[in-house]
Design a protein around this nucleic acid. Sequence first.
DNA 1: TGTACATCAGTGAACGCGCGTTCACTGATGTAC
DNA 2: TGTACATCAGTGAACGCGCGTTCACTGATGTAC
Lengths: 210, 210
Amino acid sequence: MNDPQTEPQPQPKPQGRTAAVGRPARADAVRNRERIVAAAREAFAEAGPEASLNEIARRAGVGPGTLYRNFSGRPELLAAVLKDRVDTLCARARDLLSADSAGDGLAEWLRAFLDHARVNQGLGGALMLEQLEATGALGTDCHQRILDAVTALLARAQDAGAARRDLAPADLLQLVVGIALSTTHKQASPDDPEQAKRLLGLVLDATKAR
Amino acid sequence: MNDPQTEPQPQPKPQGRTAAVGRPARADAVRNRERIVAAAREAFAEAGPEASLNEIARRAGVGPGTLYRNFSGRPELLAAVLKDRVDTLCARARDLLSADSAGDGLAEWLRAFLDHARVNQGLGGALMLEQLEATGALGTDCHQRILDAVTALLARAQDAGAARRDLAPADLLQLVVGIALSTTHKQASPDDPEQAKRLLGLVLDATKAR
DNA sequence: TGTACATCAGTGAACGCGCGTTCACTGATGTAC
DNA sequence: TGTACATCAGTGAACGCGCGTTCACTGATGTAC
């Protein structure tokens, strides 16, 4: 009777996502999941990674319960939004690894990374690097993939003599994340939209071999 | 009867701080104000600038009403905490303006600024630069004073040929704020406590005249 | 110095709010015949 | 192809929580005599 195997479990806990096996996902379920991710992307972009989950559900036109059926909570939702972004960046890195100039390839990718990181108020920055790690595989994976990308591009630039040897990939990444964070405030400062680019230029200068 | 001048106003609104004229501030009022600022300093350092105001009042051993009697709200409280910090930084800048090496003076001050900005999770960074501006004189003043400090130090370094001429003081400041922000996460990353210093070193390299 | 009193700072329960999250119920969907 | 049915995704009111903020009341403090 106390055998935990046979105790009636209140819910099999779908653990978000679609069922691993059995019936294929229902059409409306797939549609709603996509709408939630799209709404989350917008909301995170506007209000930052702290955007209200209820608000995201509202935007997606679903009840809050539906959001929770698909995602265990905020971290998983953030990870889902991030995944596309990281996929794109990794693909870009792969392309740029065969760029004519190793230095330009690195610079170009960092520009792309900065653009992505600035959208969503540092979501693609701080969160990718730190916060999601606590949530397990999803976050760590994003972090690692980005780090791998910059590591490969930097190593190539270093081998080509286009970047100083005493520069750690993680440091370079962190600097660019810093630019993203410091130039993306709650209300986008209309003062100087070119500032981020200038700052990245300075950092790129600093990476050059002396 | 409708003359707004003679309408009974529910409260003269002390507008925080001590009364401008009339009786001197009461002893316990002065004490409490200091305790609130001290509690706020701690709380902001631990939980960031979003720290709960009720929690701050609790720490200070006063009721939430007392906090509001002394400060109109969060921005004013942040500004009060910031003021000491900014005073210190400005004094340091004044000293360093007569340092032997103009370049070293600038570098030294940026190190101090980074230290201060990292405490309180970017309180001394992002907030000083942006958020408080909306609150009027207090925030703008802090921002301006810091900007004045770095402007003077940078100009001197440029005149001495120790810093490139095409560098705006605001950009330099923003870069360092970025380092502060990206290296100060919610839970301080114990991974690499030296990272911030290394990143600042890179930025300092980038400021050198070519 | 001692005392009566007016002032005004402090108190803290209470309010309204939006948040994250749950769960009993509804009903759309896909399946089996 | 048409229909009956089982499954399970969706719903959304409701909950508990901590937040920022208020305000009627209390009482410590400084002043005047």
